[in-house]
Amino acid sequence: MKLNQLRDLVAIVERGSLRGAARHLDVAQSGLTRSIRNLERELGHPMFERDARGMVLTPMGRVFYQRASSAMNELRRADEEMAQAQGGALGTVVAGLSIMPHLGMLPGALGPFRQRFPGVTLKVIEGLYPAIEPGLRNGTIDFYLGAASQAAPAPGLIAETLFENTRIVVGRKGHPLAAARSLKELSTADWATPSLDVIAAEDLNEVFSRFKLGQPQIRLQANSAMSLLVALAHSDLLTMLPRQWAEFALTQHALQVIPVRERLTAPPIVFLRRADLPLTPAAEHLSDLLKRYA
């Protein structure tokens, strides 16, 4: 088995076709075809089948792809780590962040990170742990920083709790319920939930149940901060967000906090990475900067 065979298989999966993979790798399609056929012959199983969507992994192909992808990501990291350790400033850092670190940590960390590693490409993925976990496990995502999941982290991941957090009620400027000071006064409002990655509706139901209120009327589910911001700013929907939203300058002109007296707990903020895969110097530096703002 050769490294170029693993590279070729991963490229076909990620690009969805032989043509896309050949263009990405700058090689001939015929060479990719021979590479995959040789790999299949060596493994004794077909890796792909063709359908209207292009090249699709077989069940055995899906099993092998997980290992091949992980191996290629580890080699990429090793190459970048050696270059960065020798003073180089190239490579890629992929960070999975939930809403809270996007608003409360990333703004302060970006400047110093860009100054220290100006040539490193930073990829930021917005999401919660359940959606980020596959990338952490196969090495495509360097680390996750954000709200903890109700489920325990997958085996092989290191979890570090940074701090406990609380939530606030947020609505548009001039919301008709802006004078409310208790959750009970907001119990008949229409609500939005900030993510589809965890069972956000159940989470909001649990908050209302804790204060012996009926189930909230959830009228919108948004799976990105931008979608939620637009919905809140242009409707009478309310939502519960990490308290750090109140300090985010870009939303202060459109949104306001409705200061209810109840203490609204939030999932703790955690940092997760693979135990057996050291971070590159650039990823380590970014994670340290983000933690500093915790």
Score class of each variant (00 low, 15 high):
16 G>F: 00
30 S>Q: 08
32 L>V: 08
31 G>C: 02
36 I>V: 10
54 G>L: 03
27 V>A: 11
38 N>R: 14
43 L>V: 15
48 F>W: 08
20 G>A: 10
50 R>F: 00
46 P>D: 13
48 F>M: 06
38 N>F: 08
46 P>M: 08
19 R>K: 15
45 H>M: 12
45 H>C: 01
21 A>F: 00
16 G>Y: 05
19 R>P: 01
21 A>E: 01
22 A>S: 09
37 R>V: 05
23 R>C: 13
26 D>Y: 09
30 S>M: 06
26 D>N: 14
40 E>V: 07
20 G>P: 00
60 M>S: 07
20 G>W: 00
50 R>T: 07
33 T>E: 12
36 I>A: 06
58 T>L: 10
52 A>M: 05
20 G>N: 04
19 R>Q: 12
51 D>H: 12
47 M>F: 02
17 S>H: 11
56 V>W: 11
53 R>V: 06
49 E>V: 07
53 R>C: 04
43 L>T: 08
31 G>H: 07
19 R>I: 05
34 R>V: 04
42 E>D: 13
47 M>S: 03
60 M>Y: 02
59 P>E: 15
51 D>S: 02
43 L>M: 08
37 R>P: 01
36 I>D: 02
31 G>V: 06
58 T>P: 06
19 R>A: 14
26 D>H: 13
56 V>G: 01
39 L>C: 04
47 M>E: 07
46 P>Y: 08
44 G>S: 13
35 S>E: 00
37 R>N: 14
37 R>A: 01
45 H>L: 11
24 H>C: 01
28 A>M: 13
24 H>A: 02
48 F>D: 04
20 G>D: 04
54 G>E: 03
52 A>W: 03
23 R>V: 09
33 T>L: 12
43 L>W: 11
51 D>R: 12
61 G>A: 03
38 N>T: 10
18 L>A: 09
53 R>M: 12
33 T>S: 09
46 P>T: 00
55 M>P: 02
58 T>I: 06
18 L>H: 10
52 A>C: 02
28 A>T: 08
23 R>Y: 03
55 M>R: 04
26 D>E: 15
16 G>W: 00
57 L>F: 01
50 R>W: 00
50 R>I: 03
59 P>D: 14
46 P>G: 10
61 G>S: 07
26 D>F: 14
23 R>T: 12
17 S>T: 13
38 N>I: 05
59 P>N: 11
53 R>G: 07
59 P>Y: 03
19 R>E: 08
50 R>V: 06
23 R>F: 09
36 I>C: 01
55 M>S: 15
20 G>E: 03
32 L>R: 07
31 G>Y: 04
36 I>Y: 03
47 M>Q: 05
53 R>Y: 08
24 H>V: 00
58 T>R: 14
20 G>K: 02
42 E>Q: 10
48 F>P: 04
53 R>D: 02
29 Q>V: 07
59 P>L: 15
26 D>C: 12
54 G>Y: 01
54 G>T: 09
20 G>I: 03
53 R>S: 09
41 R>C: 13
15 R>E: 01
44 G>N: 15
20 G>S: 09
18 L>S: 05
56 V>H: 06
42 E>Y: 07
18 L>D: 00
40 E>F: 11
40 E>W: 04
21 A>Q: 11
34 R>S: 08
19 R>W: 01
28 A>S: 15
31 G>P: 06
58 T>Q: 05
34 R>D: 01
16 G>N: 13
47 M>C: 10
15 R>H: 03
59 P>T: 11
